[in-house]
Design a protein around this nucleic acid. Sequence first.
DNA 1: GGCCGCCAAATTGTCGACAGTTTTTGTCCC
DNA 2: GGGACAAAAACTGTCGACAATTTGGCGGCC
Lengths: 228, 228
Amino acid sequence: MSLVPSSKRSSSRSVARRQTLALSITEALRQEIVSGVRSPGSKVSEPSIAGSQNVSRAPVREALRQLEREGLVVFDAVGRCRVVELTSDDVEDICGLRVSLESTAASHAAARFSDATQRVLHDNLEQMESATTLDEVSMLDLAFHGEVMEASGRRRLIAAWRAIEPQLRLWLGTLQRRREAISADVLASTVAAHRQLIEVLASGDRTRAREFAAFHVASWVDGNDTTM
Amino acid sequence: MSLVPSSKRSSSRSVARRQTLALSITEALRQEIVSGVRSPGSKVSEPSIAGSQNVSRAPVREALRQLEREGLVVFDAVGRCRVVELTSDDVEDICGLRVSLESTAASHAAARFSDATQRVLHDNLEQMESATTLDEVSMLDLAFHGEVMEASGRRRLIAAWRAIEPQLRLWLGTLQRRREAISADVLASTVAAHRQLIEVLASGDRTRAREFAAFHVASWVDGNDTTM
DNA sequence: GGCCGCCAAATTGTCGACAGTTTTTGTCCC
DNA sequence: GGGACAAAAACTGTCGACAATTTGGCGGCC
């Protein structure tokens, strides 16, 4: 398999680290996990990956640690690594934390909403309106919420979000591999909610932003079946 | 779903990983940073640490990555590592996130409050009452809140807390190195607040737990001077 | 005195190797 | 067929080494 070329990180905030083998492998593995090529619970050993990617174990090791940070793999007591298996409990956990983080972020974002942010969000909205596949919508949805997080300007809040976002992607992927089509009304309501969130953020009303974000995320969670 | 038997160590990791060189070095470095032996902004290079600890660079490298995860060191674009320099902005950031996480945790903890947890918290309370140094009180305070986080049973919530807790320790350390004595009324009010929090948690009222925790943490933040 | 380029030292990213464990395989016996 | 047991394979943690960069210092030049 070839290493993913990795378009540069969309977020301008995080420091662009020099491209390194460990980074390429991290991205490649993340993609494999989220896309389901590596199924939950399957073993992930350093030598096998090092062999398949034609690198030494060192960068692989580093990549696995990064993926652990993102919650996509877990290490057992003896250091063995496996792809994480998300239970419905885990999903609940993730979503609960997500509500906390996003509502807090929305509150901050409302206090420092910029034109640039608004442009980015509107852009995302337009893309979503013309999206066709469920996968596309999900990714745009995550990107939208990621931008709101970034707009909060709170580094540690963003870091906490980044620690669960890949798990959300993984979960959404699993869901999508069961369904296939995209429900038109879900798309419509998501777009509507996002549009409304932008307005609330632009209004600068922090309390309302917090509450609306909490409500939107929570109802989004309800809209998706969390049982696995 | 198994939960921590609560029998073992108080600051329990979810998994007791086998003792490893990387772990020892992580702990040693963390201590050096939090205690101020390594001052904020100072360089942390792999060879120097490897040399001083008589190990190779590999475990040092891993330790530094762990410390980065804990926010105690930062890497620049070319991979150089330094001890983090916390600005008043950072502290605000940390505390804001802390309020979010702890109030959420309190809400969950109230819903599943156990006798074991109550015992641990009361134990902490007693220790704090007989504490003499400011350092002692701070550590017990952090331990108390850590236990509340654990009591929430939300792994990812706990993980997010662990990602900022060391930075809190670092900040408290710097503060303490400026003052010296412990204010009796601060101690008293902290103990009182903790006692009250235990009661609220035991009552099982999730909303009240959330609100009380948010209030307590926020006022604690106000009580400490965040300007650096 | 201050700025510029050059050389030496230091540092990171990556590699291959080895020892100690853990897991798997294969075999023999019941 | 199933279980105990031993050999074999696989894996992790750690080490030392090397090349490519980056940093720091030094002398020269304006």
